[in-house]
Nucleic acid binder design. Structure first.
Lengths: 172, 172
DNA sequence: GTTGTTGCAAATTGTTTGCACTGGT
DNA sequence: ACCAGTGCAAACAATTTGCAACAAC
């Protein structure tokens, strides 16, 4: 939990390639690659999971301490705009960010007890989407919000033993 | 839109009954019925829809102007605790509240463009829930978050013509 | 008369904005 | 050299908390 960021010595080819590719995309739009953006991308790339703004800010602080929190927000906005970064709305009030490429398209579910996020197959809701389309003409974007419920561990143990707590303490 | 609150003259039997019933439940727990709680319940009862804290606060201000915003939050917390009020997490960062009894159990979907909320049959996700249970032991609570997407109107008109805007301007 | 609840003001938390300056290209 | 992007401080919005006064029971 304290250091999933690669030490300055480990180049991490994947992250390097990502930075280069994004730099190109940015330049194509007349925008620029910068330290904060690099740090945010690195944070996201080295986790492969879903991070809250809070968690990204923390990770960035370890990677590039001089980067201001404000710039993290701005970097996330810019990268979202670019399409490299996506976000998922979790229950409660939190938003989680992840790289668009990562692990292909997938849906999310979050445990309302321990906050754990579970990835689900992208096609899980296709029939539901079809039904909603037929019923209301509603065009479902299933990846955009996380389904809510209880993970296996928390369902088994009804009380809050805060099993893993990889994410937030969650209220509801 | 400006006044769905009943004028002081109209008693509204449904709301009255609700207030009485909740008062009993509160007392059973050693708690009390009060002006703010009455106002919040009335606001929710007279809308039958889903209201944001903002909207509730506004409605309450019309019903009982002396009620402080803080008390609205506290009333919502108390009534949620009691189980009379439930909330749904909408995309973006908003939370909508509604009476537990209202229109029976149902799911929600929200248009990410205009914010409109659509009610869906409660059983829409049962097969998905089963699949998640089998796959991960995850116990889905489908009512707790709103599915996200585009409503028919907004899907037809790709640009933001802010069709109805019953709810928030929504960003994403 | 108790004590749960309120109103208010102040503290918190999370995010955004204005602006002079820095750094990528 | 140009101007997008940054750091910082201040503005903002939304919710929470401490506490004395109040009112439901």
């Amino acid at each position: 939990m304290t250091s999933e960021v690669p030490s300055p010595g480990s180049p991490d080819p994947d992250a390097q390639a990502l930075l280069a590719a994004v730099a190109v995309q940015l330049r194509a739009k007349g925008e620029r690659m910068s330290a904060p953006r690099r740090a945010v991308l690195t944070a996201l790339a080295t986790t492969a999971g879903h991070l809250s703004t809070e968690e990204i800010a923390t990770a960035v602080a370890e990677i590039a301490p001089q980067v201001h929190r404000t710039s993290v927000y701005r970097a996330l906005a810019a990268l979202s705009e670019l399409g490299v970064v996506q976000h998922v709305h979790l229950g409660h009030g939190a938003t989680a960010y992840h790289l668009t490429g990562t692990r292909g398209p997938h849906l999310h579910a979050q445990c309302r007890q321990c906050g754990r996020i579970i990835d689900l197959p992208a096609d899980l809701l296709v029939s539901v989407a079809d039904r909603m389309g037929a019923l209301h003409g509603f065009e479902l974007d299933a990846t955009h919000v996380a389904l809510s419920g209880l993970c296996a561990d928390c369902a088994a143990e009804p009380n809050f033993e805060e099993h893993h707590h990889k994410h937030s303490p969650i209220a509801t």
